[in-house]
Design a protein around this nucleic acid. Structure first.
Lengths: 189, 189
DNA sequence: GCGATTTGCCTAAGCCTGTTAGGCAAATCC
DNA sequence: GGATTTGCCTAACAGGCTTAGGCAAATCGC
């Protein structure tokens, strides 16, 4: 009997692909075992549980998204950086809807603190350097940006914008523009 | 054998309560049957499927939230209305986290079109009447408000704001303030 | 190269959730 | 009070999750 060559890494990667194909909530150890042509129980040498798999995919997605965003904002500042951040975020979600959903999984505090989620927050703060906003306004702004980006992407993904004929692309630009203006006016001397 | 008096209504209501207690994703026909002290199969006279139950809870929550928001914005305009809308939205999510999650369930287009989700969009548009924003900017603004409110509540619920000491209440006010300013500056003549 | 050890995947079995089919008794209708 | 409807039941099956223990392939030490 030839071995399939399973590793935790490969399982999580395949789980991420599966998530994009069938939706994150349809990702199951059974489906993953089928995809590798092995029996379900075999995965338990590499995964502690189904929850463990999901958490793994979530961490993987957070990492990947953080990498993309970091790449996008590198060498940019101000509105440029804001737009690049926004685009990277939204593009990732559209390209990898399952992974994006995974990235939104509730993680327990320790796991979250050790995740790439921290980098996300740092990068958002980095964007704000171009706008001279001091604390505590800076934190307010970080939260607002996170909310808008996540909220928009989440609503768009769930089809919330399909009632109206207005192009979501236009709305996105309009919103990024508005946020830029807003942040420039919120500068603290 | 005395009958439990099940109805679709009661099941959905109990499902909503269950969602608030244990989380929307933990709502299952089995748990619901246990709560009523009946056998699982008995629920199938009142529900088509587990999915049906979840959809029912989602529609119920959308309705309830729309009622609350409608109540909050009645007789208000401009920033007042905006703040009331925002507060009603956030308060509902904090009071009924399970129902709020339910309200975010992906519905198929026909179901969504017949749901109270439509009222949500209308009310958001009503808020904008106080700001004189013409199409297509109005749609952009509707999408932005929806994104911020949903995004903020969603991030707050998942513990995304607990790393920083800054009071989420303060951030919320700051954001509502900012949105008001933004919308006033976006007025189309 | 070959025996000993480790590792990887397997079978088996138990539990939980979801779903359908068919039965019996309680409620309701005349 | 008998006939009909309705409500909940038992039974059975299909997954999915998880643990325990086994056998064979890969790897290590010589």
């Amino acid at each position: 009997m030839v071995r399939a060559g399973l590793t935790t890494e490969r399982l999580i990667r395949a789980g991420a692909e599966l998530a994009d194909e069938v939706g994150f909530d349809q990702v199951t150890v059974s489906a993953l075992a089928r995809r590798f042509g092995v029996k379900v129980a075999s995965l338990y040498s590499h995964l502690k549980s189904s929850q463990d798999l999901k958490t793994g995919i979530a961490l993987f997605a957070l990492e990947e998204l953080a990498d993309r965003v970091a790449d996008a904002v590198a060498g940019r500042a101000g509105k440029d950086a804001l737009a690049a951040f926004a685009a990277a975020y939204r593009d990732y979600a559209r390209e990898h809807p399952g992974r994006y959903d995974a990235a939104r999984l509730r993680l327990d505090p320790e796991t979250a603190a050790a995740s790439a989620g921290v980098r996300h927050a740092q990068m958002t703060r980095a964007i704000l350097r171009g706008y001279d906003i001091a604390e505590p306004d800076q934190t307010h702004a970080v939260r607002m940006l996170g909310s808008v980006f996540h909220g928009y992407v989440s609503l768009e993904m769930s089809g919330g914008f399909s009632h109206t004929a207005v192009d979501p692309e236009q709305s996105w630009s309009w919103i990024v523009d508005s946020l830029d203006t807003l942040l420039r006016n919120r500068t603290t001397p």
